[in-house]
């Protein structure tokens, strides 16, 4: 098995950290963009780009509430995202066992 077997969407440091952080939340919970950015210490532009890629793949959803300065974007992992992380972890374990 090679690293090609790992999901390329997750196998990137920033996106791996995003998914792992959201997976630590109880199922059905969401995290604000601000708190996620603070936890991961990424720039807003960097975080938005990675989130967009994961959202396009259906791994997470984002929901905007409020208007203007009071607006807030919440991000949550989808069932597909959680399953993708599980599959990624399994593949990673297989790769490490083979090393």
């Amino acid at each position: 098995m090679t690293t090609d077997a790992l999901d390329p969407l997750i196998h990137v440091p920033a996106r791996l950290r995003i998914i792992a952080t959201l997976a630590a939340l109880p199922h059905g919970d969401a995290l604000s963009f601000t708190r996620l950015q603070e936890m991961l210490e990424l720039t807003p532009g960097n975080l938005i780009t990675h989130l967009r890629k994961l959202e396009d793949a259906g791994y997470l959803t984002s929901q905007k509430s409020g208007e203007g300065p009071d607006s807030r974007t919440s991000i949550a992992l989808t069932n597909l995202g959680r399953a993708a992380l599980d599959a990624y972890t399994e593949t990673l374990r297989g790769l490490l066992d083979g090393l």
Binding site: V12, G45, I48, T49, H50, R52, E55, T61, L92, L96
Partner: peptide, 21 residues
Amino acid sequence: MNGTLDRHDATATDEGDLDPR
């Protein structure tokens, strides 16, 4: 999907290959 994340201000790259360990 709600798709509320803007595409502007994108600076991220895929940061090269990541070692499994």
